[in-house]
Amino acid sequence: MSAERPEDRLDPAGLTNPVPEGHSSNSRLERVLRSGRFAVTAELNPPDSANPEDVYEAARPLSEVVDGLNATDASGANCHMSSLGICALLTRVGYGSILQISCRDRNRIAIQGDVLGAAAMGVSNILCLTGDGVQVGDQPGARPVFDFDSISLLRALRTMRDDGMFLSGRKIKTPPKIFLGAAENPCIPPFETRADRLAKKIEAGAQFIQTNYIYDLPLFERFMNRVRDMGLDEKVYILAGVGPLASAKAARWMRTNVPGIHVPDHVIDRLEGAEKPGLEGKKICIEIIQQMREVKGVAGVHVMAYRREELVSDIISESGVLEHRHAGTGRRRKRTAG
């Protein structure tokens, strides 16, 4: 009798799949990271459309090369299809999705509810962000919320998962099985305390970190030195953020108009001097990915490029970081990340 009910044929949250020992979710990203392999995630830019095909079209080229697809949450305070909507679509076809939650647009009531909804739809990775201010977006007159900040949000979600309750103390019948992430921006001030803030994020519940764009390797190395000194690379998986620059002009524009992006002059000069700046931007990106592989404590890369999913897919393939993915060749490292 019950087999006739259509909902019984569905198990979107994968409740019947047991979570692997020592893991906190069924996330592919978590499995890859815990196995010690170099992980790859990419950003999927949300369409201004209500058509699911627009999501799938953007996701297709990326799905073959990544362990998780970040669905941005109105990044830059611009309105697009919601991260939750996109993640729900992605999980339906079996892609690993990373739900992004920005504290700018929703209060604690909305967010805690969304997390249960997302987990029920099979979303198993959540990236907690503070979010850009509304002033940079397309609707600067909006009321900013910022009820949580990224760190209190992490702690709230960890409480939901580990203690099975809302912040009010009310019980959650089936807690969400989620792998928790946060962002970090190592290349902007205050440099000296960025690693301390990372420690705070780990303390709050972060299990993986995706950084903002990194074009300044020496500055990033300085940050990583501090991270390793504090032993943080043993407690969290760090995915370095990279992305191709289209031209010197675009790089300059990003530097002045997008909050939190640092592009050093020598990178801009290189683009300016190139015959085909687009190709040069791609080359620079591939080089950075390959250098990131060698940085101790970096567990993977996070590739971002606004609405250029094909290009991102090419960059990942050409960088060669996936060549070590054949069974049994993963570099195994002992990790204690919770």
């Binding site: 503070t130 760190i151 939190g260």
Partner: peptide
């Protein structure tokens, strides 16, 4: 802080250390 962060700073701090907003 315009974002009322209780655990800051955010990722938008300007190169000169000034506020994003």
């Amino acid at each position: 802080c315009p974002k009322n962060l209780r655990n800051g700073p955010c990722g938008g701090v300007r190169e000169n250390g000034n506020c994003e907003v």
